[in-house]
Design a protein around this nucleic acid. Structure first.
Lengths: 205, 205
DNA sequence: CCGCGACTTGACCAACGGGTCAAGGCGCGC
DNA sequence: GCGCGCCTTGACCCGTTGGTCAAGTCGCGG
């Protein structure tokens, strides 16, 4: 009884082949979106026959889910690694922001399609898993900064959304070619932008 | 020789019917995205038979284009109307930002799908028409504020992208239910956030 | 050499969805 | 009553695409 793709262990060669499919998919999703990318396109890009896809993934959706979960784990790891545990929360927010910008810059293809996914449907649910955790973590830092008197007493959820939104909007523009700066320059700018906004935005009246 | 849909003039009843199709499309695009919305869904939602669609629009794409151009015109009008011509550029930037947030709030369904469109393909080109003009106009105001000494001497393109990105990221979160504030409260917050960031973000070192 | 597991292929299938068009209904003017 | 214009219908067409699966190749161990 042969196992299904999802429960399968692959040889090292099989893992390489699987990664080729994923890499091809990322590139194509970035070029034309998930919906307009066919399984046939992915296999052609990877240089294999179409039926091979199903040895590795049960459906088109499963590749997407696996991809999103892998990238999310790595994204959060990069953020955590960049934040100095001994620094004050505002500095940590800036460091996390800079790391986010850098990570997104290094994986531009992935983020170029994942940030333009429709907000409903099966794919959205997978994406939502991560963003709620991320928002909670950012908000914890904003709360800490507020208690330490480093930022004004404005709505912390709004502040957190401002931080996260700044990262995505700047990296979006960078990817679209609207910006002519290096990834490091961009990361530094966004860090300062976020810091200025956080410390200068007064409370609701 | 009957005219094609695009060159056709409709009776007032025909215009009403056409608008029903557009309204149905907006709602469905918002719910599931453009790609996953079928012509049949739109007609069902509008309460008409599928073939009727082609009396009004030649293709699925044409409805999208017409919709985007109409909404863009109205969006820019709302921004222009909100900016006091006698005010300083920083104030005008804040007013324009607030108007943007309000307009997006009032047309949440439309913006919920239009902001998550893939960045390549036939639809992207139509969307890009507008965003380049908008960026140019925001940048003109940032330049003016810089000359007046109201904002630091940081990269004006980056600043402009920060303004536009703040609008979209906050309205996105508001639409996703992450925020529990009114449209006016949100507009006011975003205005202040943008002002704080613009005035507080120091130049690249 | 044989059997087996790990792939790998590509023709095929069914469902799908954008678009087509002949036929029909309705209201209006002559 | 008739002709015409403005819709309106829904069966149909055809190309497309995610998924299926029988057949095949290759490498390895006995």
């Amino acid at each position: 009884m042969t196992t299904t793709p999802a429960g399968r262990r692959h040889t090292s060669q099989g893992e390489e082949r699987k990664q080729q499919l994923v890499d091809a998919a990322v590139a194509l999703f970035a070029e034309r979106g998930y919906a307009a990318t066919r399984i046939a396109d992915i296999c052609e890009r990877a240089g294999v026959a179409k039926g091979l896809y199903y040895w590795y993934f049960p459906t088109k959706h499963d590749l997407f889910v696996e991809l999103v979960r892998t990238m999310r784990r790595r994204f959060r790891q990069a953020q955590a690694a960049a934040m100095d545990p001994d620094a004050d929360p505002l500095t940590r927010l800036r460091q996390g922001t800079e790391a986010s910008v850098r990570f997104i810059g290094e994986h531009a293809a992935y983020f170029s399609f994942v940030e333009v996914e429709p907000t409903d449907g099966d794919r959205a649910a997978v994406l939502r898993e991560g963003s709620e955790v991320y928002l909670r973590d950012v908000r914890a830092l904003v709360d800490e900064a507020r208690r330490d008197g480093l930022v004004p007493d404005a709505d912390p959820t709004l502040m957190s959304i401002g931080v996260m939104g700044s990262v995505s909007s700047f990296t979006n523009a960078w990817r679209n070619g609207s910006l002519d700066v290096s990834a490091d320059e961009l990361a530094a700018f966004v860090g300062r932008w976020v810091e200025a906004a956080l410390t200068g935005t007064t409370a609701l009246r």
